[in-house]
Design a protein around this nucleic acid. Structure first.
Lengths: 257, 257
DNA sequence: TTATTATTGTGTCATGACAACACATTAAGC
DNA sequence: GCTTAATGTGTTGTCATGACACAATAATAA
């Protein structure tokens, strides 16, 4: 089976390709149907899911590895991607999980095989535009899909903790930095932007105050009228003023929600 | 020479004791003479300094290692200590530095010796009470002292970058979280607290507005009058209300500077 | 065609945080 | 007792924010 050959090859090559004891786990967030989604991969031979992870090549910058992995899973580059935490529990790895999989593909390993040793993982989180993503599983997974953050399947090892922490950091960041450029299409309406904020914060916001505040940041440009397909009054379309947006990204916003 | 024997022993034992390719660097901040200080160690056999660093034992939690190293350098535990970044450049290590030192103490190494391989480091920063610290150098250093952050000596490898990043994060944190409990003595005056903020932010603040704002957080308790040694009017003494302080640490403050 | 209904655009008002600033109070040194 | 320099306390105008009202628009039902 071709997939298992891929996995076998990973077991065979990994030790000499990758930096030992170091992995990357990226929590990739998207927004769709008014819901905050996370990209998860379904692992082969086991009924568990994982956030987008991978390893660091021996001569590769850790941040570069995160960018590469994001690109491999989504096809996207030039994306908001940020370190948020290092998970360094000596017992965070699940050896049994690796052993089962190696046995299944017939890979002969020794007790000191690299994958069975201690790993620490650097957590990243990414914000991507849902519709631009073309999810691709890696050699260790047989599918890669979006999941609502309120309906998560069983996650491997400490990935639930990683995801929760990423979400916490995202919520904190949202208060001080503009978010949206990476999560929404180029043109969007104010209600859509508001839904995004409400979803991330898990909180209702006042429509009028929200608009006043967002416009107050001066990072939005108002365009012509909306695609008038929707019922009721057609809302304006907006896009981000990239120059001011990036300025705000650096300098931060003000106030809280 | 006893110190060199220590260093030799480190070269000898390190490989089997420590997790490979992983180090910790803690930027330890203190406040004294109205200046923000950093604890630096002077490395043996070379005219460079380093922030408080160390390695992680093979079965030790990364955060636990940071706590241990902080304790080894300062004698303190139960201190504000926080991860802030992972430095993952594949070329951040300076092999020549290690080679020189190994040659000096007469340690015979091979080309694949652990210290000569790639290291990534997890950056932590700590806030400590200056007067409580009893600086102790480690086996790789021959002294350990406080330095004003405006008068830094030459730092090894990427330690200047690490320090700068820590400072940046500290400044950002200061806006949203209370700082001071760990940097000031139990009892302090409002002008002292203000000086601390002014020093970290590198910015003059209005005396009256500062007081109003700090008191507004409700994390301070006013005590009796000041040690009346100083000239002029004696200011009140304050201490932190620990319960409310820790609540504010979790929930964050509000507003900016 | 007209009324209904849901949604968006825009505005008002009271509250509270904050920056800028004034004046009284206290302690040390002359 | 007077000067000086620092601290304790209060005032005012501005601005961001939360709570809320009303008009405008577009699809649907009558």
């Amino acid at each position: 089976m071709i997939q298992d050959r891929e996995l076998y090859s990973f077991f065979e090559q990994g030790e000499k390709l990758y930096q030992r004891g170091l992995s990357i786990d990226s929590v990739i967030f998207g927004f769709h149907d008014n819901q905050l989604k996370v990209l998860l991969t379904k692992l082969k031979n086991i009924d568990f899911w994982a956030v987008a992870g991978g390893f660091v090549y021996k001569n590769e910058h850790v941040d570069a590895a995160a960018i590469r992995i994001l690109k491999e899973r989504t096809g996207l580059s030039d994306i908001f991607l940020q370190q948020f935490y290092v998970f360094g529990d000596p017992n965070r790895s699940d050896k049994k999980f690796h052993i089962d999989r190696m046995k299944k593909v017939g890979w002969n390993f020794t007790k000191d095989y690299w994958l069975l040793q201690r790993f620490i993982t650097v957590g990243y989180y990414a914000l991507v535009e849902f519709s631009h993503v073309n999810p691709k599983p890696d050699s260790m997974s047989d599918s890669c899909d979006w999941h609502d953050i309120h309906e998560l399947p069983d996650l491997i090892m400490d990935h639930e903790q990683i995801l929760k922490k990423a979400l916490e950091v995202l919520r904190t960041q949202l208060k001080y930095q503009p978010v949206g450029y990476n999560l929404l299409p180029k043109k969007f309406t104010m209600p859509e932007l508001q839904k995004l904020y409400e979803t991330i914060l898990d909180k209702k916001l006042d429509r009028r105050n929200f608009q006043r505040k967002m416009l107050g940041y001066g990072i939005l440009k108002r365009l012509e009228k909306r695609r008038e397909g929707g019922a009721h009054k057609a809302p304006y379309l907006y896009s981000f003023d990239l120059r001011k947006y990036h300025k705000a990204l650096k300098e931060g916003l003000h106030g809280e929600w």
